[in-house]
Amino acid sequence: MSTEALSPRHSPWTISSRTVVFGAVGAALYAVLGLASFLIPGTQSVAVRPAFALVPFFGKRFGVIAGFFVGFIGNVIIDLIQGAGLLWWNWSVANGLVGALAALIFAAIPPISNEAVRLVATALGALAATAIGMLFVVTDIWFQQGVDFSTFFYVNYLPALLANGIAVVILVPALDAAWEPLAKRAGL
């Protein structure tokens, strides 16, 4: 099995028809599957959304642009369909940053030949991208009344990190392992 996400000939910053197509497909998948979510009681509209695992997966496999596009556009579409409009735009940016950071993190990790170690590194890289990218929601402090640092951290950030962290640690390595033979067959 392959030991790296992007082939050596592709920079994580590459913009090509492949990047655009996979970014659009990923955003559509995330938008549709992301509707299967539920709110965590006691939070300010933080949802458990297993489809979030698609964001760092697409970042890892298809680069910064595709990863950001999947997270940002996918989340915007989910919010629009659920009636929130663009009120929570900063959460969409945070989702996009997770995808972009995942691409950068995985581009920096050297190839790993051991499958088990590769899957653990995939889980940890996706979790790190999620933890760092979701920090952008600190902007809630400036854009919403009544949100101080404590509220941001305990009511917004930690529940989102916990819910999304569980999803990415379990699902991103599973998606990556399932994608590997398909990518080989398709020559991607």
Rank of each mutant, 00 (worst) to 15 (best):
Q44W: 15
I77M: 03
V168L: 01
F58E: 05
S37V: 06
V48W: 15
A66F: 12
S150V: 13
I40R: 11
F72I: 03
T122K: 05
G26N: 09
L161S: 03
G42C: 12
V21G: 05
R49Y: 01
A51M: 03
I40N: 08
V64F: 08
V32F: 09
D176L: 05
V21D: 04
A36S: 08
N164R: 08
A108E: 10
A116H: 03
R118D: 03
L188Y: 09
F57H: 00
Y30K: 11
K184G: 03
K184Q: 10
G59L: 08
L104F: 02
L135Y: 03
I105T: 05
M1H: 11
V48S: 14
F68R: 07
V21C: 07
L39I: 15
I40F: 14
Q144H: 11
A36F: 14
D79W: 00
L119I: 04
D148H: 07
V138L: 05
E4L: 15
A107L: 10
V25P: 07
F58V: 06
G67R: 00
G59H: 11
A47R: 14
V137A: 13
S37W: 09
S37H: 13
F136N: 05
S37N: 15
S16V: 11
R9Q: 14
N114R: 13
L171V: 00
L182H: 01
L35G: 14
S2I: 10
G146H: 09
N95T: 00
I40Q: 10
A100T: 02
P41E: 11
P159C: 06
I105Y: 06
L124S: 12
T14I: 15
A108D: 12
I141V: 15
L158V: 07
V155D: 02
V93H: 02
W142G: 13
I73H: 02
G133W: 05
A186M: 14
A28E: 08
T43K: 06
T139K: 02
G83H: 00
V168M: 01
Q44G: 14
L127Q: 12
F58T: 05
N156I: 14
D176M: 09
A128S: 14
F58L: 03
A121Q: 04
L182Q: 02
L86D: 01
R118H: 11
T151A: 12
A167G: 01
W13K: 08
A53V: 01
S2P: 13
G23E: 05
P173E: 04
P159M: 08
V46E: 09
K184P: 00
V70C: 00
A163M: 06
G26D: 05
T139A: 08
M1I: 10
